[in-house]
């Protein structure tokens, strides 16, 4: 089976997605459409299913009912289908997850060379271009453990971009960083947003949500509670649970 990518379909579509861990229901009827070039921020209390939801989009987690479509292609059990979708969906993790045994440059060239079968020279050229973009080109021959957290996360973003994905998923990209390093990572993300990359970010950075997001999604207890443009979301939340959550955030 070779799934056909439909260029006019929404970038990502979740239709009534539900997921259980044994008897615990992690996601309940989650539906969400993300169009091309759209920036969506997902927020909510811990344990609300935000990370689980985006991990389902590239099949790091498997949903049990409902449908997930990436550019109109439905995610199925089929290995080929999953690998095809993963090439189009980049992901950045809370813990960076760089490959510690490879240099920064090798971290970036591994997937293009293995998955896209790109010649080494071309992959390195591409990698240097993205490393320059995240302002870290001079570290190319170091190992991840020699870099600060903020630098490692920028490398992780560049690594995902090297696969030239259609969508980027961010799973709390700044949560493991020291405060002084958060800005350098957010700046890279903002630049990416300005270039109209389709992005879904799980984050607690409400300033980022306010300035960058087209829409903010609030999740609680595995459900999508509220979806609104940031101005409306922050100024005039409709749901009681959203108000409670925002109230708690503002107290800090």
């Amino acid at each position: 089976m070779d799934p056909q990518i439909n260029k006019s379909a929404p970038m990502i579509e979740l239709r009534n997605v539900s997921k259980w861990y044994d008897s615990f229901q992690a996601l309940t009827d989650v539906s969400l459409i993300v169009n091309k070039g759209e920036r969506v921020v997902i927020c909510g209390p811990s344990g609300s299913g935000k990370s689980t939801a985006i991990r389902c989009i590239n099949r790091l987690e498997q949903h049990q009912s409902g449908q997930i479509l990436v550019e109109g292609v439905e995610l199925t059990q089929d290995f080929k289908n999953i690998e095809l979708i993963r090439r189009e969906v980049g992901m950045v993790f809370q813990q960076f997850n760089l490959f510690p045994h490879l240099t920064i440059l090798q971290n970036l060239t591994l997937a293009p060379r293995r998955v896209r079968k790109m010649p080494r020279g071309q992959a390195e050229e591409l990698a240097m271009r993205y490393l320059t973009r995240v302002r870290i080109a001079e570290q190319a021959h170091k190992y991840p453990s020699q870099l600060s957290g903020g630098q490692q996360q920028r490398v992780a973003i560049a690594r995902a971009l090297c696969m030239e994905p259609q969508v980027m998923l961010f799973d709390e990209p700044t949560s493991a960083l020291d405060p002084e390093m958060i800005k350098e990572v957010l700046d890279v993300m903002i630049e990416l947003a300005e270039e109209h990359m389709t992005m879904i970010c799980v984050t607690h950075e409400m300033g980022f949500a306010r300035t960058v997001a087209d829409r903010v999604v609030f999740m609680d207890k595995g459900q999508v509670v509220e979806v609104a443009p940031p101005a409306e979301f922050f100024a005039n939340p409709k749901n009681e649970r959203t108000k409670l959550f925002l109230g708690q955030l503002l107290k800090h």
Binding site: N58, R86, R87, M91, F93, Q95, F99, L110, A156
Partner: peptide, 27 residues
């Protein structure tokens, strides 16, 4: 080997053999 190494290599579209050979087994 931390689960994140599997996650990261999978998210880059690598298949099982590639993950094992290039990411997991060397570590």
């Amino acid at each position: 080997i931390p689960r994140g190494q599997w996650d990261a290599s999978a998210s880059l579209g690598m298949n099982f053999v590639q993950q094992m050979r290039d990411v997991i087994l060397p570590q």
